[in-house]
Nucleic acid binder design. Structure first.
Lengths: 338, 338
DNA sequence: CTTGGGTGCTTGTGCGCGCAACCTGGCCGA
DNA sequence: TCGGCCAGGTTGCGCGCACAAGCACCCAAG
C-alpha cells in the first residue's frame, strides 16, 4: 500500500495524495478531491512508510529519552507517559531507552536516528561523544552549559525537602543512607551531596553517609552507632532504603520515630503500608513530564529553550516514620567510626 | 556525511562503498580497496542513514517489545536487557514500549514500523487489530495459535510454583490476594486462574480470591475471615501484596507463618528485608530474555519458530513468611462471605 | 591473434515520499 | 479578442542507499 496505489484508486496523481494527507500548506486541493482521497486512503488502509518520510523530509520525528539505569518506579512512569503524550500531540514519537555502559550493543541513538536526545539526567562525557558521533546535535540537558547533575531541579529538590522536613521537626544530627545497589551509585552520590549542602545551609550536621544493605548483618550495629553518635534523623536514598532502615530499627528495638526518624524518597505505594508507614518525598511527575517534553520540543523545532518554565512541585508526605527529635542525651555527639 | 562523500574521498563509486561496508555477499572487492574504504569511512565518521537503509532494504531491523502496563521490576529489566543483547548481536535494534489503552497517542508500532512486534504477554484483540492495521504481520506470541495468556510459561509457572510450595508444607486451604492496582488487573486474573488450576490439580481448595488494598481498613477483618474459614496459606500476586498481607497480619496479631503462610512473586529485594522476610518465586530472567529474543529472531528471519526451546527455570526462595500448615481447628471450613 | 572466463569495479534503477516547479483551463477586466 | 490571474491540479527531482546488471581489464587456453 503506497501513496501511488491510493492515487491510482482515486484517479489523481501521487502528489495530490501527499498534499491531502499532509495538509501541506500552500497546496490547493478542492474539498471534493480531498474528500475522495481521504476516503480511499482510509478504505485501503494506507500507512505512509516512515522510512520514506524520514528520508524525504530529512527528519525522523523521533525523540529519544535516555533513562538512567535505575529501577523505574511509579513516579517515573507517570513522568514519561506525560512527556510522551505532549510530544505525540506535536507529532513526535517518543522512544525510551536505558543505556548500559557495560553493554557492547549499539546504542539506540545510532540505530533510530532521533531528532532530539533527552537525558533524564545529564549525559556523561562518554555518552555525549557517542551521541555526537551518531550525528546528533540536539541534546538536552544542554551539554554546553556543562550542567552539574546537581543543577537538575528534579534531582536535588527531593533530598533538600527531606532535610528541611527533619530540620523542621527539630533534628540537628542526621545520617544519609544510600543504596548498595551499584546502579543507584551515581544518583545516590548526587542526592547525598544535595543533602549535605542543604544540611550545611540549615546548620545541621550529617554525621554519617553510607550505603546500607539488609543482607549485611551489621546494619543493626550501624543504627546503634548512629544513635550513640547523636543521630536522630535518617535521610534515606529512597523508600526501599527507608523501609530497610525502619524495619531493621524496629527489629533492633529502636523506636521509630521516637528514637530515630526516617524519611524516604519517591512516595511509593510501599511507603504507605510498611510498618511503620514511611514519610516520603513525592514529585509532581506529570508536571516534570510536561516540562521535559517542552524542552525537547523547543530543541526539535529550533526554538531557543524556554528556560523560565516553572519548576514543578515537590512535596512531602508525612507518615509514621518521622517525628519530633528526642533531646540529645549527655555524652552523645561523637562521630561513629567505620 | 553520505556514502557518496566517502566514495569521492576514496576515489571509487558509491556502490563500492556500500559493498565494502555491508560486506555484501557476492561482491568482489580487492582487499586493498576494502581497506581504503573502511579507513576513510572511519576517518570521516560516516554513519549510514537508517531511513535510507530501511527504505532501500524494505526492512527496518527494529524489533518492538511491547511491555504490559505493570511496574517494571528488577526481574523484567534483566529479561529485557538480555533479549536486547541477543537481538543486537543479530543486527536488530530493540525498542521497548508500553501501550496504554487510554492513550490517544499513536502507538509506536505505527511510528517506527518494526519488523517484529513482540508481546511480553499475548496481545488483546484490539491491539492485534491495531498492529495489523499498521501493516505488521510478524507478531509473537503467535496470535493465530490464539494462545490464552494462560499458556505463556513465563506467566503461569510462578503461580503454579507458589501453590506447590504451600501444598508441600501441608496447606490445604488457600486464598489468593491480588493487587487493587488497576494496571495489574489483567495479569492478576491470569495468575489467579493458574493458581486455581494448580490447586485443583493438587486437591487443594482456593477458598477466596480478591484484590486487597492497604488503604482499605477492612484488610485485618479479611484476614480473620480467612482464618476462620480455614485458610492457612495465601498466594500473593507479587511481593508487594505479600508484604501487605504479612505486615497487616502481624499488626493484627496473626502469627506469620504459624497461623498464616504467605508466598510472594518476583523475589524482589524488598522480600528479603521485610519483617517477616517473604518467601517468593524468582525467575531466570536471563533465560527468559534469550528465549524471547530467539522467538523474535526466528520470526524476523522467516524461520519457523523453534517451539521446543527449553522453558527457563522458575524457582522458589523460601524465607520466613511460609511454614508448615497448622492443623485445622474444629468448626472451621466455612467459606467467608464478602 | 582470438576467445573465454574470471576479477574488480561502475552505472543505473528503484525504494516511497515531500515538495518545487510547471501546466491547464476557466473567468474576468481591458 | 486577448492577456492576466488563479484555482486545481500534474510532472519531476532528490532524499541516501541496496543491489542487479553491465563493462573494462587481464590472463590462460586454443
Amino acid at each position: 500500500m503506497t501513496a501511488a496505489d491510493v492515487a491510482q484508486a482515486v484517479g489523481v496523481s501521487r502528489a495530490t495524495v501527499g498534499y491531502v494527507l499532509n495538509d501541506t500548506p500552500g497546496a490547493r486541493i478542492s474539498a471534493q478531491t480531498r474528500e475522495r482521497v481521504l476516503r480511499e486512503a482510509a478504505r485501503l488502509g494506507y500507512q505512509p512508510s516512515t522510512a520514506a518520510q524520514a528520508l524525504a523530509r530529512g527528519r525522523s520525528r523521533i525523540v529519544l529519552v535516555v533513562l538512567p539505569d535505575w529501577p523505574i518506579e511509579f513516579t517515573l512512569r507517570t513522568h514519561l507517559e506525560e512527556a510522551a503524550r505532549v510530544l505525540d500531540d506535536a507529532g513526535y514519537a517518543t522512544i525510551t531507552y536505558t543505556h548500559h555502559e557495560s553493554e557492547h550493543a549499539q546504542p539506540l541513538w545510532k540505530l533510530v536516528d532521533p531528532e532530539v536526545v533527552v537525558g533524564l539526567v545529564p549525559f556523561t562525557p562518554a555518552q555525549l561523544r557517542s551521541i555526537r558521533a551518531a550525528g546528533i546535535s540536539r541534546i538536552t540537558p544542554d551539554p554546553d552549559e556543562r550542567p552539574d547533575i546537581g543543577a537538575v531541579p528534579a534531582v536535588v529538590a527531593g533530598p533538600r525537602l527531606q532535610v528541611r522536613h527533619l530540620a523542621s521537626l527539630g533534628h540537628r544530627a542526621l545520617a544519609f543512607a544510600a543504596s548498595a545497589d551499584r546502579r543507584h551509585a551515581g544518583l545516590a552520590a548526587v542526592r547525598r551531596q544535595a543533602v549535605e549542602r542543604e544540611a550545611a545551609a540549615l546548620g545541621l550536621d550529617v554525621l554519617d553517609a553510607r550505603a546500607v544493605d539488609h543482607r549485611d548483618g551489621r546494619l543493626p550495629a550501624v543504627l546503634r552507632a548512629w544513635l550513640s553518635a547523636g543521630v536522630t534523623g535518617v535521610v534515606a536514598f529512597n523508600d526501599d532504603i527507608a523501609g530497610m532502615i525502619a524495619g531493621t530499627a524496629v527489629r533492633a528495638r529502636i523506636a521509630v520515630p521516637r528514637d530515630l526518624s526516617v524519611v524516604g524518597h519517591d512516595d511509593t505505594p510501599m511507603a504507605a503500608y510498611f510498618a511503620p508507614t514511611i514519610s516520603s518525598v513525592g514529585l509532581d511527575s506529570v508536571g516534570f513530564g510536561r516540562w521535559m517534553a517542552r524542552q525537547a520540543l523547543d530543541l526539535a523545532e529550533g526554538r531557543t529553550p524556554t528556560a523560565d518554565l516553572p519548576e514543578p512541585a515537590v512535596f512531602l508526605v508525612e507518615r509514621e516514620s518521622t517525628g519530633p527529635a528526642r533531646p540529645p542525651a549527655a555524652g552523645e555527639g561523637a562521630r561513629p567510626s567505620g
